[in-house]
């Protein structure tokens, strides 16, 4: 996909850059912004950001590939990110993962054919007290069990729950 930096994006970039004494400090905030607009971080987006900030492309790519929140490929409308770390594990995350795979008919890292859901596992989301936890786009869903998961998937499919982001 082609990505072009809009005037609106440029204005946001200027605002963000003003927060730091060096323009390149705005790289990560701008990548978030870019991903919000494009749904992921496309190759052209990295080129454009590098140009905008006067950085070598390699620096942008290194940053994008280092941090887990930047998607290099398009993801579904709802990105289900199930925590698999210790507290969530003890609270039944493996069962929830198996349940999600069955319910959606996809494996980890895959997207449903209708483009609605991408399933991922992630490391600690920092909400262990309400384990097991899943992040969907910008929102956290906590103290989950299979019944709550089914209800959540249904709500998402019917637009009754709209987690922020994307």
């Amino acid at each position: 996909m082609s990505f072009k930096i809009t005037e609106e994006f440029r204005a946001k970039a200027d605002k963000l850059r003003a927060r730091y004494p060096r323009p390149d400090a705005a790289l990560i905030p701008l990548l978030h912004e870019l991903q919000r607009e494009a749904g992921y971080v496309p190759e052209e987006g990295m080129d454009e950001l590098a140009r905008l900030l006067g950085l070598p492309y390699s620096r942008v790519k290194a940053v994008v590939t280092f941090y887990t929140m930047f998607d290099r490929e398009p993801v579904g409308k709802y990105h289900l990110q199930l925590c698999r770390n210790i507290s969530c594990h003890m609270a039944g995350a493996p069962d929830l993962l198996a349940h999600l795979k069955r319910a959606l008919g996809i494996d980890e890292g895959e997207t449903t054919k209708d483009g609605l859901f991408t399933l991922s596992t992630v490391e600690c989301l920092g909400a262990c007290g309400s384990a097991p936890v899943m992040q969907v786009n910008d929102g956290y869903f906590e103290k989950l069990d299979t019944a709550k998961l089914d209800a959540l998937l249904d709500d998402l499919r019917h637009g009754r729950v709209v987690p922020g982001g994307r």
Binding site: E43, P56, S58, R59, K61, A62, F66
Partner: peptide, 24 residues
């Protein structure tokens, strides 16, 4: 980055999945 100042190369990824690369 320091001698030729062309900065083509970087370590991409992280951990033991890291690799040296430049723009495809």
């Amino acid at each position: 980055s320091e001698v030729t100042k062309t900065s083509e190369l970087e370590v991409m990824g992280r951990g033991d999945r890291s690799y040296i690369d430049l723009k495809e």
